[in-house]
Amino acid sequence: MNIVKEETIESRMDKVPVGLKKSLTQVGATVTFEFKRNLKNMFISFGIAVGIYILSLVINLIQEGRGAESPASAGEYLTSYLGMIGFFILIIAVMFAGNIIALDYDKHTGNLIFPKITKGRLFLGRVIARYLLSALAVLVYYVLIGATALIKYGDLPIEILASLGWAMLYTFAVFALVAFFSSFLKKTSTTIVVSLVMMLMVFNLGTTILMMTGVTWEPLFILTYYANIITYSVGYSVAGVFVIGLPTERFLEGSIGPGVGGDGPTFMRWITPDVTGAIIGMIIYSVILIGAAYLFFRRRQQK
């Protein structure tokens, strides 16, 4: 049991980073640590990306095997892989943001972390690292489907990059929502369940209610609505013809009743937000949720 005292506290503290340098050092160290800590999750997320890709590929192959007409263009082919992108992003966000705060209180890991670092710096470091890992998983999926389309059609529409950009933005917005729940819910498992219920049921229910009540507002307050732009930014089909890029008509009108265009009540279904609405909407969503998560985290006390 030898404790070697090599230098005085004063001499050591002279070399200790202070102020902004200290903040950056701590955030940087947290980012690195979080990468290492989430390494296993990263590989699982890659596995999920490959799994969903294979599932979509198999569905496409079965349809082609049953005589269905093959998509005429790479863009149309890509959209068949983007049907599940919203769900995939949700799974990834839950995986990386579900325990971002709740774990420290659930498993008491926070007792070791605090007060070594302020909650603000810790949260910032974690958000950066985990979002980058989430984005990496999304990127892996795009690389897979892009490569498949390239092999099959020999070219790729540039719109896939726009779609990737929207997917990245949407990933952050969903990540922020899950982090928000993690900031005040007691357990990681509760955070995951609440996030899934919110995204898969509550938002969809909201959309349905709006549609059925004939309300004409664009549902920019419904987070899942923004997922549509990821697919529609590649292109859309009109009367069997695939058109590259976002649709000019952003909503459909119809009515409920016997036959098409029946006498029943009319409804309005919004297809996709426009570029400005999507950027502003997702940024507002992300900023509010991440900000609220930080404030809850800051006020939260260890029981």
């Binding site: 050092t25 701590q26 947290t30 690195t32 070594k116």
Partner: peptide
Amino acid sequence: YFAILKGYP
């Protein structure tokens, strides 16, 4: 990680 957080050289 803890040592870096605490500013140890």
